[in-house]
Amino acid sequence: MIEYFFLLLGELIMVFGTLGILRFPDVYTRLHAATKCDTGGAMSILIALAIISEASPLIRLKFLVLAFLIALINPMISHAIARGAYKHGTKPKVVVDMYAWDNP
């Protein structure tokens, strides 16, 4: 029963992440939605699959390794995209920008 709860939670998070990507104004706020909702949604779907599947426990552990790798790699990718966008010259729509103060 708890696996369907995890599946529903993952899909709900993915739907709201997509809504955030569509509605937010610029690159950096869209990256917020992409990173967090992808990580949380994919991890909870993988946990649900690890509970549902009827394989031996060592094979189920591979799902958890996948979830761990997603949690490790996703923030790094978002950091790389944000830094690359800033270096390319995309100005953020912000109230305060301390990064531009230090790197004129």
Binding site: L19, F24, T29, D97, Y99
Partner: peptide
């Protein structure tokens, strides 16, 4: 934030 759009971003 995506539903209500009450954002106030900054670095």
């Amino acid at each position: 934030h995506a539903v209500f759009m009450d954002i106030n971003p900054g670095i």
